[in-house]
């Protein structure tokens, strides 16, 4: 996983609440292999008309291209556990989403893919939305160590779980960490077998 330290990029303002994972990637695209690249599926049905032509949508105009930051409203990524929603964002080039709150599973999935879910207060998200949408807006800078977001002379703080912060900063992979705990896991299983003999299904 690539570590996340600081990021400076154009930001796209998406002033919509409750963007669920069905919007982030409609279910019909989810049988595709990841190698196909999920970027084109991102918010597909909000960005396109049924005939495939592009709609007037914040991510569509040429000036939105290359934007690695999304600023949005509360409860972003609510709904299904599909990690494909994060794949769509990541493959589209998004590395950070700023919102007042996130769906829990979405946020956990983001960390696993090096995508920062930055939580700001509702008033700050409104300020950032406004600043990012101004014509000729300055680029947005996110400093994860300092937990700040800067657009021009607007600086706001964001929160993030401290474990997730470390994982992002160091690009840590959980599985390697866990495999080092093999002895502890074995010990737990042995004890547990006596404590809860009914917990293992009888497959015979």
């Amino acid at each position: 996983m690539i570590p996340f330290t600081t990021l400076t990029s154009k930001a796209t303002a998406l002033p919509i609440a409750n963007i669920d994972t069905d919007q982030l990637i409609p279910a019909r695209f989810m049988s595709q292999p990841r190698s196909a690249g999920y970027g084109a599926f991102l918010l597909h049905d909000l960005r396109h008309n049924p005939d495939g032509t592009r709609r007037d949508f914040p991510l569509n105009p040429p000036e939105a291209e290359g934007s690695a930051i999304l600023i949005t409203r509360r409860n972003f990524g609510c709904g299904s556990s599909r990690e494909a929603a994060v794949y769509a964002l990541a493959d589209h080039g998004i590395r950070a989403v700023i919102a007042p709150s996130f769906g829990d599973i979405f946020a956990a999935n983001s960390i696993k893919n090096g995508l920062l879910p930055a939580v700001v207060t509702e008033p700050d998200s409104e300020r950032l939305l406004e600043a990012a949408a101004l014509p000729g807006a300055r680029p947005t800078t996110i400093d994860l160590a300092a937990q700040t977001i800067t657009i021009g002379n607007l600086v706001v703080n964001f929160t993030i779980d401290r474990v997730w912060k470390t994982q992002l900063l160091e690009g840590l992979d959980d599985i390697d960490l866990t495999l080092r705990e093999a002895r502890l896991i074995e010990g737990f299983v042995e004890q547990d077998r006596a404590a809860r003999p009914w917990a293992v299904p009888d497959l015979s």
């Binding site: 556990s81 494909a84 994060v86 599973i105 999935n109 599985i175 866990t178 896991i185």
Partner: peptide, 19 residues
């Protein structure tokens, strides 16, 4: 419910890090 990376973690270790 968990995401695909967590599914892989559980498959490989039968455990999960949680807060």
């Amino acid at each position: 419910g968990i995401g695909a990376s967590e599914v892989a973690h559980v498959l490989m270790t039968q455990t999960l890090w949680q807060k």
